[in-house]
Amino acid sequence: MSSYSLSDLCSVSGVTPRTVRYYVSQGLLRPPTGSGPAARYDDGHRDRLRMIRRLQRDHLPLAEIRSRLDALTDAEVAGLLAEPAPPMDSAADYIARLLAGRGVVPAPRPAPPPGPPIALQRAMASSPERLLAMHAGVAPPDGVPVTEPEPPARATWERVTLSPDLELHIRRPLTREDARRVDRLIGLARQILRGEEP
């Protein structure tokens, strides 16, 4: 087990002292032993900092990262770091997710070709994790769960005209519950657009 000063920890982890203090204050890292210049950090701190970086790459908010890290022992964090990261979603899914996060409807997708989507093959072939794995002589394992649930393979986009100037795009299939909510939304939206009080 190595012992690090704050500056050593920062140099092995590629973060600033301010970041370390912030993570400690936010409960993402446990406090060091000792305080001030005598503060010492260990491999657990180092691994958790690396894990935070990896999770941030998946665009997870700090609160979510904290709750995931809370559930893991230092040994489990080290074990996860040793494994290659799960395969990535395709570029099209990634962009759709970002646009949806802004409340923007992604453009309708062309029908997927038979067999594994080319976009996914391509994305996997080019992912840095894949490249890293190639150097290590191991490919990322298949079937590793990804953080974001994949949209259903045969999703289709339905366009609903709410008014001559407004359309709603819906990706089907939806769960029965969501379908009911969407129906209600369409009803309400049409009422509002007609100038009626819902």
Binding site: S90, A92, I95, A107, Q121
Partner: peptide
């Protein structure tokens, strides 16, 4: 712009 590329990515 990226979406236009992503939707027809070819190896």
């Amino acid at each position: 712009g990226a979406e236009q590329l992503a939707q027809g990515m070819e190896p």
